[in-house]
Simulated scan of single mutants.
Amino acid sequence: MSINGQVALITGAGQGIGRGIALRLAKDGADIAIVDLDEDSMASVADEVRAVGRKATVFRADVSSRDEVYAAVEHAEKELGGFHVMVNNAGIASIQPIAEVTPADIEKINKVNIEGVLWGIQAAAAKFKARKQKGKIINAASIAGHDGFALLGIYSASKFAVRALTQAAAKEFAGDGITVNAYCPGVVGTDMWVEIDRRMADITGAEIGENYKKFVGGIALGRAQTPEDVASFVSYLAGPDSDYMTGQPPIIDGGLVYR
């Protein structure tokens, strides 16, 4: 599954799943463009990429800004000498009862989780076509994009939207040799799940850690997911073994949601 010498851009790569993906694709032989908002965390991940012998560059961008996402792609191509894989990983969670959702809540999550993916798809596809080459676009969805979860209503809605964008883009860009797929993680032991658990505890009155423990208890494989579990699957989507796959949002969650 070698992607040796290719260039991959990962948004939200300064921590968590994004960092795991960046390091895995670097180990697979790719040079990595790290895109995030936190400059210190980006620099740290870049050092880790270089430590495995690959090139790395960083670019600070807010994925809700179309111009900044396009600029990030331009930067990756210029600094690393090519462009082959786009991983639209950046995302945020939103935890509240449906009855309490505000217009500001909707606007915030949609701008990152939906618009951020859309701009990434656009920018990557435009660059692949300009370079007259095939390419891979890989989007972060979630098990919440297959099953709406209580207290995660608008987060779930945003991830259902990522599935729709993935399918539509796959159909539109197939003739250009561009594949578009998604990955749907479950309960990953990252800072995002720490925040989800804390907010759920505030709402339900449960002790901190109880909601997380309940979700993990429902996983067939008996443990929480790691960023490396997700990155292993993204490695497959980025590599040549997935060349005949497009428009798909597979679940990789250890056995929690079944479709």
Rank of each mutant, 00 (worst) to 15 (best):
144 A>Y: 04
103 P>M: 02
235 S>E: 08
39 E>I: 10
143 I>Q: 01
63 V>Y: 09
103 P>N: 08
203 I>Y: 01
173 F>Y: 15
200 M>V: 12
96 Q>E: 13
13 A>S: 15
36 D>R: 08
11 T>H: 05
53 G>D: 09
135 G>H: 03
241 D>M: 11
165 L>Y: 11
234 V>Y: 10
90 A>W: 03
40 D>V: 14
162 V>N: 01
209 G>E: 06
125 A>Q: 03
237 L>E: 14
64 S>H: 07
43 A>G: 15
37 L>I: 14
92 I>C: 00
188 V>W: 08
142 S>D: 03
111 K>R: 15
216 V>I: 13
257 V>H: 05
183 Y>E: 00
24 R>H: 14
210 E>P: 03
181 N>R: 02
175 G>K: 06
162 V>D: 07
11 T>D: 03
216 V>Y: 05
161 A>D: 08
133 Q>M: 09
130 A>L: 06
197 D>N: 06
173 F>T: 06
58 V>K: 13
178 I>N: 05
161 A>I: 08
255 G>L: 09
210 E>T: 13
222 G>E: 08
166 T>D: 05
28 D>Q: 15
254 G>D: 10
95 I>R: 03
48 E>R: 14
17 I>W: 04
211 N>M: 11
258 Y>G: 04
10 I>C: 02
136 K>G: 04
4 N>H: 10
171 K>W: 10
151 L>E: 09
232 S>C: 10
53 G>K: 10
128 F>H: 01
133 Q>C: 07
92 I>W: 00
106 I>T: 12
46 A>F: 09
7 V>W: 05
138 I>G: 01
90 A>Y: 05
58 V>R: 13
197 D>K: 04
28 D>I: 04
92 I>M: 12
82 G>D: 03
90 A>C: 01
182 A>E: 03
117 V>C: 06
225 Q>H: 04
249 P>H: 06
242 S>E: 12
122 Q>K: 14
164 A>I: 05
201 A>L: 00
233 F>W: 08
62 D>R: 08
2 S>T: 15
196 I>R: 07
245 M>A: 14
137 I>L: 09
127 K>W: 00
70 Y>V: 09
104 A>W: 01
173 F>C: 02
213 K>T: 14
205 G>H: 10
2 S>Y: 06
202 D>V: 12
45 V>Y: 11
56 A>Q: 09
151 L>N: 14
105 D>L: 00
206 A>Q: 13
138 I>K: 01
50 R>H: 05
187 V>Y: 11
38 D>Y: 07
77 E>I: 00
95 I>D: 04
109 I>A: 04
37 L>V: 11
9 L>R: 02
5 G>K: 11
124 A>I: 00
249 P>N: 11
129 K>V: 10
63 V>Q: 08
100 E>D: 15
38 D>V: 13
146 H>W: 13
67 D>E: 15
123 A>D: 06
34 I>N: 08
3 I>S: 03
4 N>A: 14
75 H>V: 01
90 A>Q: 01
235 S>W: 12
237 L>N: 12
